[in-house]
Nucleic acid binder design. Structure first.
Lengths: 78, 78
DNA sequence: TTGTTCTACGGAGTATACTCCGAATTTGAG
DNA sequence: CTCAAATTCGGAGTATACTCCGTAGAACAA
């Protein structure tokens, strides 16, 4: 599994854990609703800047969007 | 230091450890010589696809281009 | 069922990643 | 220092990331 696939899976998984809709996440990250959907379906290869925006909106470390699932440890929301 | 800055620094550091010129790395990765230069000087935010091409050309794990310097352990060339 | 929220999908437009080429500048070896 | 290799810096063009808008379909609750 390459870094692109890991990103798509982690994004969807973490967004759901945070109980955010694609639209709410898009708004918080300053991105478009349809683009979040596309990212989760592997339609685009995001830039590091987009990854930074998403990790901030999800309140996680940027690398957490890119790690293999087995290394993922998610901090609880305070 | 954000993920973009870490990428730029790690790229330059690892490329030099591998004793590759920007031009040779560009050729091996299938990218442009001037683009490698731009990436090392933080002129662009690369996509995950570009990161995959570079990590393959450098024979390292893709995450190694993105980690903080302190976590970098580079495998020797065989 | 009906309504509601979420997600998938399409198309057209904009911003920027990336290419290609040359030339100037820097770096390092001899 | 001189010479060569490496890097930087433009500019112009192409590819694709990303936006914006609408609509259709899925999921799930009342």
């Amino acid at each position: 599994m390459d870094i692109g696939q890991r990103f798509a899976r982690n994004l969807k998984k973490i967004r759901r854990l945070r109980q955010l809709s694609q639209e709410r996440l898009a708004h918080q990250a300053g991105l478009d609703r349809s683009y979040i959907s596309s990212l989760e379906r592997l339609k685009y290869s995001p830039t590091l800047e987009t990854i930074t925006l998403l990790s901030r909106a999800l309140d996680i470390d940027d690398l957490d969007l890119l790690k293999p699932e087995s290394e993922l440890i998610l901090p609880p929301l305070t």
